[in-house]
Amino acid sequence: MESRPLRYFVAVAEELNFTRAAEKLGIAAPPLSRAIRKLEAELDVALFERTTHSVTLTPAGVVLLDQARIALEALEAAGQRARRAADPDPKLVLAVKADNAAGVLETILAAYAADPAAEPVAIRLCGREEHPRLLREGHADAALLYEPFDHTGLDTETIATEPRVVALSTAHPLARRAQATLADLEIPGFSAEHPTDLDRCLVDQSRRSNARDLPELLAHVEFGDLMTLLPTSIAARYPRPGIAYVPVVDASPAELVVAWPQQSRSLATAALVRAALSVVG
C-alpha cells in the first residue's frame, strides 16, 4: 500500500466530502474519487458509503482511518529522524512543558549524563497537548508529561504521582476551606458516577477558555471565570495573590510519565528512560 492513496483517503475521511478534500489536497475531485475507488478495489472492501447528499465511513473505513494516521505519522517521523541522524552534532530531544516536571527534571538529567549511552540533551519546550505529536512525528525522542494524553504509538512509564489541588479565585466561597471534594467543585460535565471523566471535563473546560498556556489559564482562574485541578508541585511554582489552592481529598493523583515512540530503538532514549526510573525508584 502506497502513502499517496492513504493521504487521499485520510483527507476524504476527515472532510466527508470529496470536493472539500480535493481542495485541501490541491487536486481535482475526479482523480481523487478514482484513487479512492482503486484503493477500495485493492483492499477488496468499501471504505465509504456514498449517496447524493452525504459521504460516511464504513466500519472498515473507520479502522483504516485510525491505522492510516498511524502509518502516515510513522513515515513522516522516519524522515524527520533520518534528517536528525545526519546532524554532525546529534542530540537527544526531550519534550517538556515549562514548570511541568514535578521538580525532577534536573535530577533525571544528572542521572542520565552518567550513563555510557547518554548523548547531549536538547530540551524542547512545548505547550499543552503537544508532546505526543512531537514524539510521533519524530521531532522529539522522549517526553515528560502528565496523564491523560493520547498514547497511540507511544510507550510510557510512570515516574511520579502527587496529590492535586483546586485552583480557584480567592473570592470563591471554597477558597477559605481547608479542603474540598469533587462534589464541592461542581465541575461542568462531571459526575461522581463517572470519575474517569474528570480529566476529560477539565481538558474540555481548558480548551473552551482558549488559554494558550498555564499562566493564561491561571489568569482566567484569578478572574473567577473557572477553576482547575493542578498537581501540588505546579501549584507551588505559581503563587498568586488572587488564587487559592485547596486540597481535593477525593481527586485521583496526578501522574507524571516518561513517554517515547514504540518503534524507538535508540540506546540514548533507553538510557533516559532508565535514568527517569532510577530517580523515582
Rank of each mutant, 00 (worst) to 15 (best):
E2L: 14
L6P: 06
L6K: 02
V12W: 08
A13S: 12
E14Q: 15
E14T: 04
E15S: 14
F18M: 10
R20I: 08
A22Y: 09
A22M: 09
K24A: 11
K24M: 06
I27K: 10
P30L: 01
P31C: 01
R34Y: 12
A35C: 07
A35V: 01
R37E: 10
L39V: 05
E40G: 04
E42A: 14
D44L: 11
V45C: 03
A46T: 07
A46C: 01
A46K: 15
A46P: 00
A46M: 03
L47T: 03
F48C: 02
R50G: 02
T51G: 06
T51R: 08
V55Q: 04
T58Y: 02
P59N: 01
G61D: 05
V62A: 05
V62N: 01
V62E: 15
V63K: 13
V63T: 14
D66G: 13
A68T: 02
R69Y: 05
L72W: 05
L72H: 07
L75C: 03
A78G: 03
R81V: 04
V93W: 11
V96W: 10
K97A: 04
D99M: 04
N100C: 06
N100F: 05
A102H: 09
A102P: 13
G103Y: 11
V104C: 08
V104H: 01
I108T: 09
L109A: 05
A110P: 00
A110S: 11
A110Q: 12
A111K: 11
A114Q: 14
P116A: 06
A117F: 11
E119H: 15
P120H: 08
A122G: 00
I123N: 05
I123E: 05
R124F: 08
L125M: 11
L125S: 05
L125W: 10
G127Q: 07
G127R: 12
R128C: 00
E129F: 14
P132F: 11
L135G: 07
E137C: 03
D141L: 09
D141G: 11
A142Q: 03
A143Y: 04
Y146V: 00
F149P: 10
L154Y: 13
D155H: 15
P163H: 02
P163F: 08
A167R: 08
A167C: 07
S169A: 15
T170E: 05
T170R: 15
L174F: 14
Q179M: 06
L182F: 11
L185C: 09
E186K: 15
I187C: 08
G189K: 07
E193D: 14
H194A: 13
D204N: 14
D204Y: 08
Q205P: 00
R208Q: 15
L214P: 10
P215M: 02
E216T: 03
L217W: 07
H220N: 13
H220G: 12
G224K: 13
D225T: 14
T228S: 06
L229P: 10
L230I: 02
P231G: 09
T232G: 02
S233E: 04
S233M: 08
A235K: 02
Y238T: 00
Y238I: 00
P239W: 03
G242Y: 08
G242P: 12
A244N: 07
A244Y: 04
V248M: 13
V249L: 14
E255N: 01
V257A: 00
V258L: 00
W260Y: 15
P261W: 13
A268E: 06
T269W: 09
R274P: 11
R274N: 13
A275I: 07
